[in-house]
Design a protein around this nucleic acid. Structure first.
Lengths: 129, 129, 129, 129
DNA sequence: GTGGTCTAGACCACA
DNA sequence: GTGGTCTAGACCACC
């Protein structure tokens, strides 16, 4: 899986990293149970500090996206905790995006189409194990 | 219009303020052409520094959401610059949200329903003037 | 002569007014010796405060562009004080513009062409009186 | 690179700072990719507040002249966004300058010569990286 | 009265 | 050690 960081972005490196891994999981580029690179490996590949990768992994673990096994390193969680209700945070973020889209003149049907396109790339399936 | 800030949030105050005003414009709580509170007034009401409100207003102005008239303070822009294409940034943000929703077990139809609910609260109309 | 002010500009109203009159003189829209509207008249036409027009006129007078006669109001100076040397301020402004143009990728020949176009619209001639 | 601020100028300090850095980039005094002083360092050297330098840097960043890397501070952008068309703003500023020059009695050939002199000092080249 | 600018000093997130 | 954020309080330009 390809990860590209923007060093001059407002978004902190560890958050960019976390986001791209989340997207990777959702699109299926990272399958459930798949092993992630070691902290040192990934830090080397990206040319960043190991602390930064470490922080990204910690957050992903704390959010339940990955599990960290001392012996085998990090891997994608076999299945995620399903929230019955959409998290309040997700809804707030979505509301802000929709507000901006509305003001820019994008109507609901075009927005829904855009969502459909994005959804079609999401092939996440929890592990059978 | 009610604005509530979380002092302990990661999101800077000026950004929270900016976001809530954007949403206020989109939902119609702040009509096009409507006058915003003065920098001092709002700072006072929210119990924060004038510079913080100032920064929020500056960003909103630079983004085209509001107009600052030397004579009468700030007001909502009569009409916004319509982007023909959805900005790349909007799409990236949306992709991240959808990725997270997918992993949480929300399927496309529930997501679309959530969008519909939010859209139904957006009543922004550009000014006729 | 048409004057249009941007109320939401960074540039103060009195300065916009001053600038447009200077350009009007240079392009010949305002001939040497031509009478300017009264302060009150102009303020009314533009829908702004008389103080603002007053300030613009004061500056123009102090810079030598216009003369103010208590009996006949303001008129364009018959001839301007010719500076042997380009004023330092003009040179500094020009340098900044050229710097920005250079960085944007505009080369000297295109810049010169732009200057020529603008010069061709300048038909200022001092009065013969 | 030498920077000198006029404390008694109408032009805000942060804008003077911004202007001088832009000129520095265009003249090549600040090479593409070159590291700028830290906010604190520069504030100290100039005897002004860090926020003021901060604001100048923010503007330069937003305009694309510099890039801020979380790890190593600010540096000159490797290459600038080239505008195919001269911005309307540039043209308006140039028109005002030419108007003033005309009225002061400077003819086109002398103006062009002045431009040539200034251009000869501009040695900006985008980075090869 | 409005927003714009600046200061001195502080704390925090990031790497 | 870097930039980012925030505060309290001040002064100024503009209208």
């Amino acid at each position: 899986m390809l990860i590209s960081l923007q060093l001059d972005s407002e978004t902190p490196l560890y958050e960019q990293l976390r986001n791209q891994i989340v997207i990777g999981i959702a699109t299926g580029e990272l399958a459930a149970q798949e092993k992630l690179p070691t902290v040192r490996q990934l830090a080397d590949d990206l040319g960043i500090n190991t602390m930064t990768v470490n922080k990204a992994y910690s957050i992903l673990k704390q959010e339940g996206y990955i599990v960290i096994d001392r012996r085998h390193g990090a891997k994608v969680s076999p299945r995620m905790p399903e929230d019955a209700e959409p998290s309040a945070q997700l809804e707030a973020q979505l509301q802000l995006i929709i507000a901006q889209a509305t003001i820019q003149g994008m109507d609901q049907s075009r927005f829904q189409m855009l969502c459909s396109q994005i959804f079609s790339r999401m092939t996440y399936r929890p592990s059978n194990v």
